[in-house]
């Protein structure tokens, strides 16, 4: 039996957007005749996710990530294509499906502002039909994992953004969803809160075996949580595979950082690779992956005692992603097509 929890095939979403030029004339004309443009947000993507995987869903703003998550959670109907999550078609929005998945969006509240979160939780307990024993166990787990003790009995509106996010997380997970869609879960949070949320997602996956599909603009989230990433750009799938492979395929070079002693600070290292930066005796070179070991050995051999330190690193994942989105990689950048204008 297949362990695939999420299966997506040819999923496509076109938005119809009202368009009008600025100015009085255009305003008057739009009263009589409205012009619409169709914009392809998701241009036919395919992927599958196995039970228990934590997958990063990457793409620049407007790439179609959130639209895809909204379709998979049943909020949006696709223009075409198919998807099943836990065997359900999400946009049928069957109660049994909604009870088994969650979509958590950073900065979006689903709790009642004027009452303590604990009271909102009791409402969710009934809506999701959680029995008393399971509820109490999950409640205790979430309070412990997210350190909610001092927050849970305060009105939600009195919580800080980070505190509210933690409480929102708990609210979205009370029904122990088997599939968790996370859209920018650490958006706007300080570094320490980001680390806690990451730790929590990791623990959640470990404890419950929940399948997680996560979007984030913070690469630290992705690096900390996801072995596999799916990259989309202009609604098309660019890459689906290991995070480590992404760096190898999209950025086929390594970075050699050489720190030179005072007497050799001006040495010319350009023959070993492309100089990326030079700063107070520290020179960073971009070297093709295949030549990285050889060039490193050459630098050590040639410079000998003039070398204070030498490191060989993969480029930062942010840089790799930036290259992908800017089209500076072997696959080029797919064009976003306005499907039709009328």
């Amino acid at each position: 039996m297949s362990d695939r929890v999420v299966e997506v095939s040819g999923l496509r979403k076109i938005y119809k957007v009202h368009e009008r030029q600025s100015g009085l004339g255009a305003t008057v004309r739009s009263l009589v005749k409205r012009t619409f443009k169709e914009v392809q947000a998701v241009a036919g993507i395919d992927f599958a996710i196995e039970q228990g995987e934590v997958v990063g869903f990457l793409g620049p703003n407007g790439a179609g990530k959130t639209t895809t998550l909204k379709m998979l959670s049943g909020l949006l109907y696709p223009t075409s294509g198919t998807a099943t999550v836990l065997g359900y078609t999400p946009w049928d929005r069957r109660d049994e499906y909604l009870r088994r998945m969650t979509l958590l969006m950073g900065n979006r509240t689903q709790l009642v502002w004027d009452i303590p979160a604990a009271d909102s939780f009791l409402v969710l307990k009934e809506i999701f039909q959680i029995d008393d024993k399971s509820y109490q166990r999950r409640f205790d787990d979430l309070v412990e994992l997210l350190e909610l003790g001092p927050l849970i009995h305060k009105p939600v509106r009195q919580l800080s953004l980070g505190e509210r996010m933690k409480v929102e997380f708990a609210a979205g997970l009370l029904h122990a969803p088997e599939v968790v869609f996370l859209d920018e879960p650490t958006l706007g949070l300080d570094v320490s809160m980001q680390v806690r949320i990451r730790g929590f997602v990791r623990e959640l996956n470990k404890r419950t075996g929940a399948t997680v599909l996560l979007t984030s603009h913070y690469m630290d989230d992705i690096v900390a949580l996801c072995k596999r990433v799916i990259v989309i750009h202009h609604g098309r799938l660019l890459y689906d595979g290991g995070l480590a492979d992404l760096a190898e395929r999209m950025a086929p070079y390594k970075l050699v950082a050489a720190t030179l002693r005072d007497g050799a600070a001006d040495a010319d290292l350009s023959k070993y690779g492309e100089i990326v930066s030079r700063d107070a005796g520290r020179v960073t070179l971009r070297v093709p992956r295949a030549q990285a070991a050889d060039q490193t050995a050459r630098i050590v051999g040639d410079l000998g005692p003039d070398l204070a330190d030498l490191t060989l690193e993969d480029p930062a994942i942010e840089e790799v992603i930036d290259r992908v989105f800017s089209g500076d990689h072997p696959f080029g950048t797919p064009e976003r097509e306005p499907v039709a204008a009328r």
């Binding site: 909020l75 009870r99 979509l103 979006r108 689903q110 809506i127 039909q129």
Partner: peptide, 12 residues
């Protein structure tokens, strides 16, 4: 405001 989404995601 998109606030309906939270309600649509619940089985009620």
């Amino acid at each position: 405001q998109g606030r309906l989404s939270a309600k649509l995601l619940r089985p009620l």
